[in-house]
Design a protein around this nucleic acid. Structure first.
Lengths: 200, 200
DNA sequence: AATATATTTGACTAATCAGTCAAGTATTAT
DNA sequence: ATAATACTTGACTGATTAGTCAAATATATT
């Protein structure tokens, strides 16, 4: 018994991703998201208890997608150096795609939202904090494999280095978003990343 | 003839700096800023034609302060390596101060506002873009002096490296803001920075 | 004291904000 | 067909939003 589920919730999440990533959380209203999704406000609040909860679920959806991609890129079947090369290229390709789609360089959705809301909404801040830690874990594992290979110094503090790499990348992406210009990242990220890692 | 100028405008800028840096542009209202400054709304619009113009002038004020500090830190009378060391320590001290004052790690005000508004307000995006370029110019000049000293490789692309340093720092500060935790930056920034610069 | 100018005030829009709710509709299992 | 359930609708609230404006006030010069 009961009605079959619809794609309304997913539509709202997809639209939220577009609008919030493309602008910002506080600049986008629930009405904006509803209008663009062609969903009435009553339906919105049938699926989400609040705007903040939509943001939380949107971040979950983004991270699920990232996980699929990163599980492949950082697969232990690959040489660890190749993992970083692939990731750098993936970041660039993703940014090119999104900037074409949304008309503006958007950077990292987690960093952008996290920076905006960390001081405003504790729950969102913590969620994004966790997501960042998960991303750094991919780097840390690949770094450990690089140490095992003898490709980087054996006394490398892989946890610290992983966080440096993460900060380095989101720093570049924030700059690209501010300048609305991807060219620096396109030209330099991959090489600069390998240099930061400290390949012998 | 005429009335003497008051400190009302400055009060509004100071409050805007606190509130916008501590929360975000879109989360803070003109009413919030007026109330905290103990200034009526009519006065606000006597000094600023719009909320965006207040943000622009607030960024100018921040940059003026930064310039005073950086002109000292990056004075050509100092050994270039010392400039970077001093800057790293200054960033940490400033963050500790502000987080104590505002109750939250706040990161770089330019990066935070720029990331939030780059896609929303072109004028603010461009202003912050310029400010970032000015900061990178300090690094570039110090890097050139390091090359002249033979402290880093003579084929270093100082312009690229300066932008990498800038991205590296704001990446760390965004992370600290998201996590509301300065400890990683405190422990690692200075050493990581010197490593990134590539001191021989 | 008169005047010119800068500043301040408070009441005022009109639009938008997040969120509510009761009633209506669609769909599925029985 | 009926009943159970999930989904949708549209009108609603009360608060808040950025911004306006004419009148009042303060002060420095003459």
């Amino acid at each position: 018994m009961g009605r079959a589920p619809t794609d309304t919730k997913q539509k709202l999440i997809d639209t939220a991703r577009e609008l919030i990533w493309g602008e910002s959380y506080n600049a986008v209203s629930v009405d904006d998201i509803c209008k663009k999704s062609d969903v009435k406000k009553g339906s919105f609040y049938h699926y989400f208890p609040s705007k903040a909860h939509l943001a939380l679920e949107t971040m979950d959806a983004c991270m699920e997608e990232t996980k699929l991609k990163y599980d492949d890129i950082f697969s232990p079947t690959r040489p660890p150096l190749e993992r970083f090369e692939l990731m750098a290229r993936h970041v660039i390709e993703q940014q090119k795609e999104i900037s074409k789609e949304l008309g503006h360089v958007c950077g990292c959705p987690f960093a952008t939202l996290g920076s905006e809301l960390a001081a405003q909404d504790k729950e969102i801040g913590e969620k994004i904090s966790n997501i960042c830690a998960k991303k750094a874990a991919y780097y840390e594992s690949a770094l450990r494999d690089l140490v095992a290979e003898g490709a980087i110094a054996s006394d490398t503090d892989v946890e610290v280095k992983a966080n440096e790499i993460f900060a380095f990348i989101i720093g570049h992406l924030i700059m690209a978003r501010i300048k609305n210009d991807l060219s620096f990242v396109e030209k330099n990220l991959e090489r600069a990343l390998l240099n930061l890692i400290g390949i012998k």
